[in-house]
Design a protein around this nucleic acid. Structure first.
Length: 690
RNA sequence: GCCGCCUUAGCUCAGUCGGACAGAGCGGCUCACUCGUAAUGAGCAGGUCCGGGGUUCGAUUCCCCGAGGCGGCUCCA
């Protein structure tokens, strides 16, 4: 199941004569005014979106923006947020307005209210919104003369006043224009919701617009959930009550969206993890700490084994390091300065007290490790290094522990204990560029082998308020990463200020089968740690030089990648990864022996196979193992036994009957050895029927 | 960490407006059935109603505290 892309079609372009509204000109030009492709706003030659009521001073070319286009949807959602706010203030007259922008797949609006909203409130608000929409209120733009006029009009809305002040101020405080729709670069404007017949203003909101012409242009909506959110995104500010909703150009589009959400819920790795007996989070261990059951453990082992093999082939050296260390190491690395809050608190060991209670021997703090790099640096530093050894690539499946805040742990994707497939590469300055390039293609290749093939890259650059190192170092590292990223030909998205304090990074974002993106691999160039650890190598001229260091996590964390793969495949892992690859199902007891022989042959060739000899009926067994998403079911009855054959049944219900045992074993082992990521089915397997 | 919601059998969930032995389906176990492509039938076992405290004659139910989960916010080396 995939999200259907918005209709892509050349937008209608018309010339709007001076003094005529864009809406009139577009209507005259034949733009649809109803249905999913109805024009909702216009795009001017500068690319700005304009209300259809906008009338330019001189002849101007504009493009129609359809309801079903990405921009059209945003406008609908933003207008829908206004309708929500109107409904809220109707039911909660004391509610103060925060901000109400469109977001991916929906919108939200924040309110300061006496009590949080309940699900019942949402139902009532949604009903009121439908009434407002049906009334066909016009969105009418009004320019305010000055900041003081705006503040006078908005006196009852303290948060809006704050936004007006921010816009008016020269303090340099910036407002994120994607989030704050209230004020923009131009005039301060109010949108009045006007009764279609009486012309009476029913409700107003500070807003830069644009909006759909009338509330009737919001064809489908749904309020989704409530949440708290800090005012202006800072935990130092008061929390407002947020309502999330979604709105679409048609009921069908809304239904498709809701179905996508339902599908995401069905393939939630936490749910599948329990259903398929893959892993669990026992309360006794602690929040965010997983145990992998035999089936999950098998998938993990296959993932790790394959990764190991590929790393070996790519010239990595395998190392190991302990889970805890004295504080000193993380003082040297700087992690304690930056991340102490997010580390498990230390164990204070080895302290001895005298009889009088005074300290006779001071103890030491030991920390669980949150990162592997300091250990790898010690390995590097354990003896002198020659330029001939570089690039030195140290790889480890390293378990790290991070004290994630209680509200953020989430299934396998945000945990407190995880295994990184972590590598640190030490190289000369001359090797840096080439190393990053080959690293990036190595990473992408391996991800593709796991069936992820839709990527884009993100380049996170320096956060000017949180970094160490010199401008030159940052520039050089960022440039090296950028060049490598561009060389892949993949889309590159900038993430200004997104880097960790010590290094810029490239992250690989992968889209899964539902079109959701996950950050997987990261590559960082680091100048700080080699310096802090005084890493050196002897160059060909005998001089001592400092190596460059590249941090690289490929899957990111094994746990997280496991979760991503589970959702990507909806639990139906490719056969080479599946915990149980084959289940033999006898028609009756007397056919068990035959299947045992087949299983033996498969097992001898490394296939994970079971024979279900329980006394359930055959149909029940098929159901059981199909719901367990076993890729190959092999049935055998008297006909098969006599013919020395088995009958295939696949996850999709297709079958190939009477396949000779040797052919069957060959087909399965071949499919697994090729690491086919598709789900096997009758049409895919080159055996049996012509 | 903050806000809201939730926690009943291994799993999914009923239920108790504060009162009698707390229910169902799936799963597990036992028995019968031996069957040709998604649920055979019968029986049995299984519960500190998340933990602690309080209110009450009486608490799984109401209140408080805690733990865990879920949805967000902030955070994510």
């Amino acid at each position: 199941m995939v999200a259907s892309p918005p209709a892509v079609q050349a937008a209608l372009r018309v010339t709007v004569p001076a003094g005529v509204t864009a809406g009139q000109a577009l209507r005259d030009g034949g733009a649809p005014t109803t249905g999913p492709d109805a024009v909702v706003v216009a795009r001017d030659p500068q690319g700005a979106l304009r209300d259809l009521a906008w009338a330019p001073d001189s002849d101007t070319e504009v493009d129609a923006v359809a309801a079903s286009s990405p921009d059209g949807r945003s406008v609908i959602r933003h207008s829908c947020a206004h309708v929500l706010a109107q409904a809220v203030q109707q039911h909660f007259p004391d509610a103060k307005l925060g901000i109400g922008p469109p977001v991916i797949d929906g919108f939200y609006y924040d309110f300061d209210v006496d009590r949080p909203f309940t699900p019942e409130d949402l139902a009532i608000l949604e009903k009121t919104m439908r009434r407002i929409i049906k009334a066909g209120q016009r969105f009418s733009r009004r320019v305010l003369g000055s900041v003081s006029e705006a503040k006078r009009e908005l006196a009852a809305e303290p948060y809006k006043v704050e936004l007006v002040d921010l816009k008016g101020s020269t303090s340099g405080v910036t407002i994120d224009p994607d989030e704050v729709m209230e004020v923009g670069a131009g005039d301060l404007t109010i949108y009045d919701n006007v009764h279609p017949r009486t012309g009476e203003t029913i409700w107003s909101d500070l807003c830069r617009g644009p909006h759909v012409p009338t509330t009737r242009h919001i064809p489908a909506l749904r309020l989704m959930r409530t949440a708290a959110a800090y005012w202006r995104g800072s935990e130092r500010n008061p929390q407002l009550q947020r309502i999330y909703g979604t709105a679409w150009e048609s009921t069908e589009a809304l239904e498709r969206h809701l179905e996508l959400l339902a599908e995401a819920q069905r393939r939630d790795h936490r749910k599948l993890g329990a259903e398929l007996d893959l892993f669990s989070f026992p309360d006794e261990i602690g929040s965010g700490l997983a145990v992998f059951h035999p089936r999950g453990g098998t998938v993990r082992r296959v993932m790790e084994d394959y990764s190991r093999r590929r790393h070996e082939e790519a010239g990595y050296d395998f190392v190991n390091s302990p889970h805890i260390t004295k504080a000193q190491l993380f003082e040297t690395s700087g992690h304690l300065d930056w991340y102490a809050d997010a580390m498990f608190p230390p164990m204070h060991l080895d302290e001895e007290l005298a009889d009088d209670g005074t300290v006779r021997k001071p103890g030491q703090d030991y920390y669980l490790k949150p990162m592997n790099c300091p250990f790898h640096n010690l390995i590097y530093r354990s003896r002198g290094r020659s330029y001939r050894e570089l690039p030195l690539r140290l790889f480890e499946f390293g378990s790290v522990y991070r004290y994630e805040k209680s509200g953020v742990v989430h299934g396998l994707t945000r945990v407190r204990g995880m295994t990184q497939d972590d590598a640190h590469i030490y190289c000369t300055p001359e090797q840096l560029q080439g190393e990053i390039c080959s690293l990036l293609s190595f990473v992408l290749d391996l991800l593709r082998d796991f069936g992820l093939d839709d990527f884009y890259l993100e380049l996170s650059t320096r956060n000017d308020e949180k970094y160490v190192g010199t401008d030159e170092q940052w520039e050089q590292a960022t440039e090296a990463l950028r060049q490598a990223a561009e060389a892949t030909g993949l889309e590159l998205v900038l993430d200004p200020g997104g880097a960790a304090y010590y290094a810029p990074k490239i992250s690989v974002q992968a889209k899964d089968a539902l079109g959701r993106t996950w950050q997987l691999s990261t590559i960082q160039v680091d100048f700080q740690l080699p310096d802090r650890f005084e890493l050196e190598y002897t160059a060909s001229d005998g001089s001592r030089r400092q190596p460059y260091m590249i941090h690289r996590a490929l899957f990111g964390s094994i746990e997280r990648f496991f979760g991503v793969l589970t959702e990507h495949y909806a639990g139906a892992f490719p056969a080479w990864l599946a915990p149980v690859q084959v289940v033999g199902i006898p028609i009756a007891d007397e056919h068990v022996e035959h299947l045992q022989q087949v299983a033996k042959a498969l097992r001898a060739r490394g296939i994970r196979v079971e024979v279900d000899a329980s006394d359930e009926r055959m149909q029940k067994k098929i159901r059981t193992h199909t719901t367990q998403k076993v890729p190959f079911l092999l049935l055998a009855g008297s006909k098969d036994v006599e013919a020395g054959a088995v009958s295939f049944r696949f996850r999709d219900g297709t079958q190939i009957n009477g396949v000779g045992v040797e052919d069957a074993v060959g087909a399965i082992t071949g499919w697994v050895a090729r690491r086919e990521n598709r789900s096997p089915s009758a049409a895919e397997l080159p055996i049996g029927q012509p």
